[in-house]
Write a protein that binds this DNA or RNA. Sequence first.
DNA 1: TGCAAATGTTAAGTTAGCTTGAGGTTGTTG
DNA 2: CAACAACCTCAAGCTAACTTAACATTTGCA
Lengths: 147, 147
Amino acid sequence: MDKNDIVSIGTLARRTGLAVSAIRFYEEKGLITSQRTAGNQRRFLRSDIRRLSFILIAQRMGLSLPEIEEAISWLPTGRTPTVTDWQRVSRSLRGEIDARIKLLTRTRAKLDECIGCGCMSLQRCPLTNRDDRAAAAGPGPRYVLDD
Amino acid sequence: MDKNDIVSIGTLARRTGLAVSAIRFYEEKGLITSQRTAGNQRRFLRSDIRRLSFILIAQRMGLSLPEIEEAISWLPTGRTPTVTDWQRVSRSLRGEIDARIKLLTRTRAKLDECIGCGCMSLQRCPLTNRDDRAAAAGPGPRYVLDD
DNA sequence: TGCAAATGTTAAGTTAGCTTGAGGTTGTTG
DNA sequence: CAACAACCTCAAGCTAACTTAACATTTGCA
């Protein structure tokens, strides 16, 4: 409860590299919360720097704000998270990353087959041709890449 | 030059799963080109099905339309691409995929370290703390993840 | 040949993720 | 204790990537 644990939005912005407006936007979206001073200015926990950093990491991994909100919903609000809190969240992000790597790897493998065969020039190319019944009117690709 | 090599926008839409409006949009953006009938209707090459399929694949890989345009700029316009044309383009996409996998893998590795150490709770966490000189006003993370 | 289905154009709307602007208030510091 | 930087709110604007609407024209086929 040290005075140092309470920071302004500007401080948060400077420490994370985010714009003040972006932080306000995230608060509006429920990704972060704050207290107010008597004069209605926002005051955050110093640990919110980490929370925002995590949001930035997750964004780079391609998660949408709602997805990120879900991921950090395990963190306590209004209180500095413990190491254990953070570990839980990190692990869930790791799962997301794993999934994305898997998708990319799978696609790359298919693409390799196509490079070898003159990609996408044939109906049997593994990158295309997923839903053949829908292609009743004739041969050719329709949807691309299954998942 | 068979009559069958010329298709309407509706056919293209049905064969790729794209909306007609999306195809028109792509044309406007220069991702695909067409001829016009006497009555001003668009007519595409049958091989444009593949072109659109490729665009869809690249989009799933996270490329923006301008990036995709760049990638397929090697393909001939107004003429059915050869196997070699396609191979060149596929290989360039493969490069993109490789890069993205590498970024994700690198991040995952860093995240693993953080999970072990109580992620992002310390100034020395590898996921944070990139530009320390900018943090002159105090310790703590500022930018997240280098690249 | 006639008419429904397909197309064409232009303009405005949609979602995500923020930024910018206007006009007004608070906090801090010399 | 005044000045000025930092905040506040609310509304509107912005980019990407399309969709929807409204209305006009063209095709294809019975």
